[in-house]
């Protein structure tokens, strides 16, 4: 291997600084959430304790943290499943141009770039003017889909742009129906990417704030609850909550990544050795 140029060390140092910038603040609040009971929102640490985590499990004066966590979790799963199913269908549809596909494509881009508060405002107005009650599982659910679907679809478009069509042709030549081809050939091949779409669907929903602000109704999701706390909680209890939800997000990310890894391993192990015998 040739020697590394000097620019490598400069850029590597820049990269490390960037990572510190990215993760530093989060690590700081993780440390501060173990403040002693007398400690405040900044250093120094006044002892080390689990006091503020303990506080989270007490009856809260400010709201309903565990209820909102449960709602955010369920909503995240709903959005995740819907995003995966709708994105796959959309991705399959968009492999061929059909009348109206350009319109839908530009709507997807609009959905991605539209300021989130407009969705919140518009959906909120539709519900209030037509006499419906906004609820996280109806208006909140739909509003969040306008944020997760563009990501899911763009991933699916990218996947199908690189998809080797000869697999499908082979399946069809062997007499598979259109459904059998999709179910037994296409879906297994794109499975790891679907896990990626699911990760986007769940986490973007779980963390979404602006699009749920006016559409969640009287029962808050977790980000709304946390935002409410920022205005009237001045103790490290908010750091404890931040640390817990970030920890939860990291676990979710790890689960998804490990699943992709396992799928890829299994595929490498069980995959065909066609074309390798002659080498």
């Amino acid at each position: 291997m040739e020697a590394r140029p000097r620019s490598f060390y400069f850029l590597a140092a820049f990269f490390v600084l960037f990572l510190i910038f990215l993760y530093g603040p989060t690590i700081t609040i993780a440390i501060l959430s173990f403040q002693g009971p007398q400690g405040g929102l900044t250093f120094p640490m006044r002892g080390v304790s689990l006091h503020w985590f303990h506080e989270l499990f007490q009856q809260q004066a400010v709201g309903d943290i565990w209820g909102s966590f449960a709602r955010s979790f369920v909503l995240g799963l709903m959005v995740m499943v819907t995003t995966v199913v709708v994105s796959v269908m959309g991705g399959l549809a968009f492999r061929k141009r059909f009348p109206g596909s350009a319109v839908i494509f530009y709507l997807i881009i609009t959905s991605l770039v539209i300021p989130s508060i407009l969705i919140s405002l518009g959906v909120g107005l539709i519900f209030s003017q037509s006499g419906l009650t906004v609820h996280w599982s109806t208006s909140g659910f739909g509003s969040q889909l306008t944020w997760t679907l563009p990501f899911g679809l763009l991933i699916m478009f990218a996947v199908f742009n690189r998809f080797d069509k000869s697999y499908e042709e082979a399946a069809r030549d062997q007499g598979a129906s259109a459904w059998q081809t999709i179910w037994h050939v296409v879906l297994p091949i794109i499975a790891p990417m679907l896990i990626g779409v699911a990760l986007f669907g769940f986490t973007l929903s779980y963390d979404e704030f602006a699009r749920t602000l006016l559409t969640a109704g009287s029962y808050n999701t977790l980000p709304l609850e946390i935002f409410g706390m920022t205005t009237n909680v001045t103790t490290p209890v908010i750091f404890a909550l931040g640390t817990l939800t970030t920890g939860f997000s990291l676990i979710i990310i790890a689960v998804f990544l490990i699943t992709v890894l396992v799928l890829n391993r299994r595929r490498a192990r069980l995959g065909s050795d066609a074309g390798k015998g002659m080498v």
Partner: peptide, 14 residues
Amino acid sequence: WTSNIIRMISWIPF
């Protein structure tokens, strides 16, 4: 994939 609001809050001690 983590919460933006938490990431904002985390600048306070800094």
